[in-house]
Design a protein around this nucleic acid. Structure first.
Lengths: 201, 201, 201, 201
DNA sequence: TGTTAACCGAGACGGTACGTCTCGTCTTGGC
DNA sequence: GCCAAGACGAGACGTACCGTCTCGGTTAACA
């Protein structure tokens, strides 16, 4: 082999077929909803998308990556997320937490979200990508609202905001993942109350 | 179909080979530690255990069930778990939480625990089993300690103990699952401090 | 293990259950007719006969042996076979050959006969048994008739009777095995004519 | 189902790998020689050939078909078979028959030939293929020689040549299959003598 | 404005593991 | 000690996907 020539060909993104990319992501999303993450195969995605398998292997490193990308594409439009800021932290947080509870209960979100979590647990790279592309922006928006509350004296000024978010969300997230209890609006409210007491100024 | 008549022959547990059962569970445990959950195959378990594949399929419905059982078998001896009770709730909880942090960091626990969580996310039946057989007894022990603290006036008498446990453990669990932050003894202490403040009498 | 004790236990034929023996042979015969030789399994024979598998393995060395035995049992009653001897060799042979043609065409004989031949081709021991127990007696009866014809001057006195039988029967047998041509009464007659011409005095 | 639509995907023969085809047939031939037909498995053929199992299942319907094909491939080169024609029918036939006797005795031919016959007995489709592709061409060549003999007045002009071949070969074939007697050059000669007498002009 | 390199769909390939089936042996009670 | 019943270790079955590797057939940049 000639020097500088590699056998792991590097594709040229400029020539990438946008039509194929979209078809793959759409097929991936559909299949995860229909079959659940574990039963989706790359062969099935390719067939459904009307795409050669190589086209998928060329542009994505793994099944997880394809499916993750298909979620990313969904939430892409919603850039610049902002949380409500009425000045009343408790009310604002309860609004947001109740919305989160509702989202977790929505069967449209259920399957893909669980799929995502299944994959993230065992794949550090995907976990990093998840934190960077999905969780990160949302957390930034939440922390923005919390900082505003700190300025307003509604939250301890020295509170570690990452920790605040964890106390607020992790119990909810764990209940959902393990199905260890009901996800009700009252539960959402209770988490807000507890968090505000824990991090009161 | 007539009652009691099934086309999926059901084996007679009385004749089950204890030697095979043990060998399968041991092999499963070893392989999960060595390869991680995703790369363990039933064929490999059977081969390592010196057992026919059919013997596994006869007694377990899925790979997840075998592996779960192999964890169950581990913690079976440790009945009657009790938490330390020195009278000082904060100190006792910090001891326990620091131990949990250490356990999560231990590579011996890492792989199997992640395997378990991977499987639980997508399998409600397994999740129920997990709650009943593994999480349940441990949580009972923890709640016992918390009730003792309530009697001692160190915790709000009307605190929902399930919620207390969630606030205490879920952030830690989430950090570990998502690798979203360092698991340090200080972090363990912080969680105890926050929880005690949130549920102070 | 104690000296003189072997691990290949030798069963005591005196204690053998006649009821089981009969049931096994009957089940074997039925299953060969229904499924053809290749699809019959020892498990199926045992199940149909209401007999433990070990009972079959105890008394027969192989599937072929069981099935062969089941044929033997059939033709056991018909000892002392004699061919017609009207004095007219040609007429007598044509009668017998036409009967053989009819037998080969009878679907009741078809499956078991093919089964037997399948097994015999690849198993010298079974082939020997076949010659001794099934083909032998019949061939003796045929040769008896031919000797009578030799004495009557209808056949060359020095003709090798084994060869005569082969010329008479082998073409028919081969056509049937290979399905290489129609088995008609005329064909039977033609074989007799040819054989008589070839071995004319 | 719509016409032309099938759920059993059919592969495109144009893309078939010649290398794999050859490797499979070679492996099949070797394994039949080494183990005998019954003990050859598709897995073993695939492994020996360095081929995926699916590649075999894609192109052949059964083990029998693979092995049959492996024989076909052997005799493929020898197109346009011609029998010796010195003008002396008896001498020519004895030459050919002695060669056949020798071939049947050759252990290299023994195992595969028995394998082939085992399979043919129970599989009408394979039997037809055998007659068309293997026996047919050879029989044509033989009949050509016999026709030449008819023209030379060495054989009855109205003799049924198929029948002549059967009388000539079937006894030999049956002796070999059933191991019911020795296959000697003298036996070959005897069959020729008998046949010529039976079909003398 | 061809030429040509790369992507595309399709799908065959060598493999691995699946979950099922049957083999022949071993084990357990019942008679 | 034979028997029915059936669990066992073993391993082949035929299928589903894996990830790689050709095939022709379009494109799309560049010569």
């Amino acid at each position: 082999m000639l020097p500088g020539v590699s056998n792991t060909r590097k594709p040229n993104p400029a020539r990438r077929s946008e039509r194929s990319r979209r078809a793959v992501l759409a097929a991936a999303r559909e299949l995860v909803s229909e079959l659940g993450y574990a039963k989706v195969t790359i062969e099935a995605i390719a067939a459904r998308a009307g795409v050669g398998k190589q086209t998928i292997y060329r542009w994505w490193p793994s099944k997880g990556a394809v499916i993750f990308d298909s979620f990313l594409a969904l939430s892409e439009g919603g850039e610049g997320i902002r949380l409500p800021d009425t000045g009343d932290l408790e009310a604002d947080l309860k609004t947001v937490m109740r919305a989160t509870v509702a989202e977790f209960a929505d069967p449209v979100f259920e399957a893909p979200l669980r799929a995502l979590n299944t994959e993230i647990v065992g794949d550090p790279a995907l976990a990093a990508l998840y934190r960077e592309k999905l969780a990160g922006p949302v957390d930034q928006a939440k922390k923005e609202r919390l900082r505003s509350a700190q300025r307003a004296g509604q939250l301890a000024a020295d509170a570690d905001l990452d920790l605040v978010l964890e106390v607020l969300y992790a119990p909810l997230y764990q209940r959902w993942l393990h199905r260890s209890g009901p996800l009700t609006p009252e539960y959402a409210d209770a988490l807000v109350d507890i968090t505000l007491r824990a991090f009161a100024p």
